[in-house]
Design a protein around this nucleic acid. Structure first.
Length: 469
RNA sequence: GGAGAGGUGGCCGAGUGGUCGAAGGCGCUCCCCUGCUAAGGGAGUAUACCUUAACGGGUAUCGAGGGUUCGAAUCCCUUCCUCUCCGCCA
């Protein structure tokens, strides 16, 4: 969410930031709504002031028994009430339009972010390791997993459809080992506090991190709509309306509204990333600045509807509706977030280094930046079967963008005014894709898979996964 | 899921239609007095927004939203959360 005052102060700068992202200028429309809003607020408040004054006078007139004055003031107040109502309505309209507009505008890129239209213009920052060379033809992870008899897409499809998988035996354990290894690394060596958050969250939480309102189609939602309580709701609403006016038009409108409200309020969403749960831990909080940087790590499943990605990565475990991920979140003071971003990226890289998986780091250009991010580094791991690097982690500095949306603040020692925190998130790293990378980079010609040394302790000392005979 | 109780300022806690942004206490800040294992007196002490060059002025907020009323912390409705008992349950 953007600071309306910042837009007022520098509309050109705001539009320039949007243009770097390939978006149309919006400041003129925003400021026009802002003007309307403030005019209505002022007019309403003036009417309220007059109303408050008159109300006090009414009490006095009544006490003094001055009926004429009493009646005159009542008429005055009822006129003022009309002003208050019409200006209040104008305020609500303008506020609603302004909020809707602002809620849908992405974060502005940081100064240093390279300009570019799409991912083809991302900038490679560094490369670690050599792409794995195999002296035989590389199989993809599906062939390897199915060859081992430990990866079953068909069974998953029968119960859940496409983009799900069943892992068995050593592969199921390998997934567990990867998650445990990553979580241990981030918590014991990098100072992130292990956190076990909810996987189901309210819409407000998703608004806070920026998935809502624009990206609802990417989310899985639950629906707790309850017909029985809905029926009793209708009856209550009917009672309320009937007693008041008996107007059917109002009645149907209220019913619809109450129905929508009931449906919306019962609804929880499955998290598309633990970023949502972890970042929202500080929502509506005022933190002590001694708490910084606040570092949290969680291993959770992530659920993504993958709407609009039909036909992409349909084979294998690259793009699933459900996958496990170790997520890192840092909450910092504004002046710390850039350094913390570099550090967080290094914490994610360390996972791949210890697993000895070749990777590179790219900085996303302005056109490829996510909604809430002002700057992002992606980690891409080498996949022999695709002869290319594929994303396995994404580390973003969101500045105060999410903090504003969830009202997460802190107070500096000795200061009175709270300020918005900065939030950062990064995968440290995606467990499902790490499993793919291990299988492909550690595959042997005979179809077995060597287990990276760092994982062997987590595999009960197992050194190699071989086909169950 | 059923029955009941409750959500007031940094904290505790009063307040059932007007003089309540809210008594009192605690805490905190400043000042005064005193001088000794301390205490006493006084003043101040919420947030957001609008407005103003500034001082200041105004509006809203007593979990949230809506309603009744000239006027609501106080009455009504909805909703969120907390607690107690019962039921169910990994």
């Amino acid at each position: 969410m953007h600071d309306i005052r910042a837009i007022r102060n520098d509309p050109e700068g705001f539009d320039a930031g949007l243009r770097r992202r390939g978006l149309e200028p919006q400041s003129a429309e925003i400021l026009a709504l802002d003007e309307k809003l403030r005019a209505a607020v002022t007019a309403k408040q003036e009417a309220e002031t007059a109303r408050n004054t008159a109300s006090k006078a009414i009490g006095k007139a009544k006490a003094a028994g001055d009926e004429a004055e009493f009646e005159r003031l009542r008429a005055e107040v009822s006129r003022l009430k009309e002003v208050m109502e019409s200006q209040g309505a104008a305020e609500d309209t303008a506020k609603g339009q302004l909020d809707a507009l602002l809620a849908g505008i992405p974060n502005l890129p940081a100064e240093s972010v390279p300009d570019g239209a799409d991912e083809s213009e991302n900038v490679e920052k560094r490369v670690w390791g050599e792409p794995t060379k195999l002296d035989f033809e590389a199989k993809d992870h599906v062939a390897i997993g199915e060859g081992l008899g430990l990866m079953d897409f068909e069974a998953a499809a029968k119960m859940s459809g496409a983009r799900f998988v069943v892992l068995k035996g050593a592969l199921a354990r390998l997934e567990r080992a990867l998650g445990a290894f990553m979580l241990d690394l981030q918590t014991t060596e990098h100072g992130y506090q292990e956190t076990a958050p909810p996987f189901l969250v309210r819409d407000a939480a998703l608004f806070g991190t920026g998935q809502l309102p624009k990206f609802e189609e990417d989310l899985f939602g639950t629906d707790h709509f309850d017909r029985v309580s809905f029926k009793s709701d209708i009856e209550k609403v009917y009672e309320q309306i009937y007693n008041r006016s008996g107007d059917l038009h109002w009645f149907s409108e209220m019913v619809i509204e109450s129905q929508l409200r009931a449906a919306r309020q019962g609804k929880l969403f499955l998290i598309p990333t633990a970023e949502v749960s972890l970042t929202n831990i500080v929502r509506e909080e005022i933190l002590d600045d001694g708490a910084f940087p606040l570092r949290m790590a969680a291993q959770t499943p992530s659920f993504r509807a993958e709407a609009g990605s039909a036909g992409r990565d349909t084979r294998g475990m690259i793009r699933m509706h459900q996958f496990i991920k170790v997520e890192l979140v840092s909450i910092t003071a504004p002046e710390q977030s850039e350094d913390e971003h570099e550090r967080m990226t290094a914490c994610a890289e360390e996972v791949l280094k210890r697993l000895e998986l070749p990777y590179r780091v790219v900085e996303l250009c302005t056109g490829d930046l996510g909604f809430a991010a002002r700057k992002t580094y992606d980690l891409e791991v080498w996949l022999p079967s695709q002869d290319t690097y594929r994303e396995i982690s994404s580390c973003s500095n969101c500045g105060d963008f999410q903090a504003r949306r969830m009202n997460a603040r802190f107070r500096r020692a000795g200061e009175k005014k709270p300020e918005f925190v900065h939030t950062l998130n990064g995968s440290g790293v995606a467990v499902g894709r790490a499993l793919v990378a291990v299988l492909e980079n550690y595959q042997n010609e005979d179809g077995s898979v060597t287990i990276p040394a760092a994982l062997q302790p987590y595999m009960g000392g197992m050194e190699k996964i071989e086909a169950a005979s």
